[in-house]
Amino acid sequence: MTALSRIGVLVIFFMAWALASVYAPRGIIPTPEATLQAAQRLWESGQLWTALGDSLTIYGTGLGLAALAGTVIGVLMGAFRPLGRALDVFVYGLAATPRVAFIPLIILLLGLGVEAKTFIVFLGAVMPVIINTYVGVTNADSELIEMARSTGAGGMRIFAHVILPGAVPFLVVGLRLAATIGLINTVVAELYTAVRGLGGLLALYGNTFRMAEYFVIVMTLSLIGVIVTEALRLLENHLVRWRSS
């Protein structure tokens, strides 16, 4: 049923697109056919593959490191309350600062290459993971902790069996936010540093008004977004399977 209605939405979208391409002033919205042909050209020339490879490497590395570091930092902040209280204001402040503001500094420090790009992705993605993990750990259920203590469980056992599993739903929400911000920052990084990857192609075709090619890149980016979010949703369903039952 859901699948069917989703296909319905997709059909409506393509129809609206086709209509818009006919009625909009020339050169703004390409027809679906033109876009498909552009996709074929980009595919066959290998340009799309190279760009996709560049972007996914940056995105995957940055997001992966952010997930790892964010979880560790968030858990440490939550487990050692004085550390958490000392740091949390600054973490929230940093998370609220537009990360684009740091790009000139990052370029000075790391140059224009892969390292700088990966770091821009990392910096955007790590914040929601830290914050959500931290909140998840500090919100641990005090009644369950007391129950665990009454069975003689020590700190490590309580942490592993009560506090961490309770923080997992928060962590997954953090990861989903990180995936979205990470993808945005991938494109931003590619626009602001050495212009490469999907962000590079976006700039190239956007600036030269080759709208069919431009649309192909935009749709590729949405497709990456959809695939990653769906994968994380499946991961969430698995990790939090005790909830749905």
Binding site: E143, L144, E146, M147, S150, T151, G152, V162, P165
Partner: peptide
Amino acid sequence: VPGQKTAMVFQSFRLLPWKTARDNITF
């Protein structure tokens, strides 16, 4: 000493929601 000679039962059950019935006991 907690957990040595006593065991508690609470009004709010206090089961670990992420563990199966069996694992709640083995815990």
